[in-house]
């Protein structure tokens, strides 16, 4: 039963995702990238995605909740520091964040 619901939710998610992509295809060529409407869409998207990601980190519903909030904040700070100091490189910065959280967790379990 639970699996059926998951598949239905997946198809609903696909429909929503495809609708957006199809909309993008249809209006491509008719909308100039450098317009206020274009920028507004980008801002709403960034607010949504950013908010969801912050929620996933600060109020996790997964085993990430087993880690201390302070450790998660330190890990984010370490990743951001690496990102801005080392030429905005995504992979090394992400790894620094994950490694920091892992090391802090291991130190606390000693």
């Amino acid at each position: 039963m639970m699996m059926d619901i998951a598949w239905i939710l997946l198809l609903v998610g696909f429909a929503a995702a495809f609708l957006i992509r199809a909309t993008g295809v249809v209006i491509s060529g008719h909308v100039e990238p450098e317009t206020p409407l274009f920028d507004w869409f980008a801002c709403v998207g960034q607010a949504l995605v950013g908010g969801l990601m912050v929620r996933a980190i600060l109020l996790p519903t997964t085993p990430l909740a087993e880690t201390l909030l302070a450790d998660r904040l330190i890990a984010i700070a370490a990743a951001f520091l690496m990102f801005f100091l080392a030429g905005r490189k995504l992979l090394p910065s992400t790894f620094v964040g994950v490694a920091t959280l892992a090391i802090l967790g291991m130190l606390r379990s000693l």
């Binding site: 929503a16 992509r21 295809v25 949504l48 995605v49």
Partner: peptide, 23 residues
């Protein structure tokens, strides 16, 4: 279902400018 549709729809909004500018 409505929550999923609305959430994925809005979370995907940023794909519109990506598609509009890459195609």
């Amino acid at each position: 279902i409505w929550a999923m549709f609305a959430a994925v729809l809005f979370a995907n909004l940023r794909n519109i400018p990506m598609i509009v500018t890459s195609l």
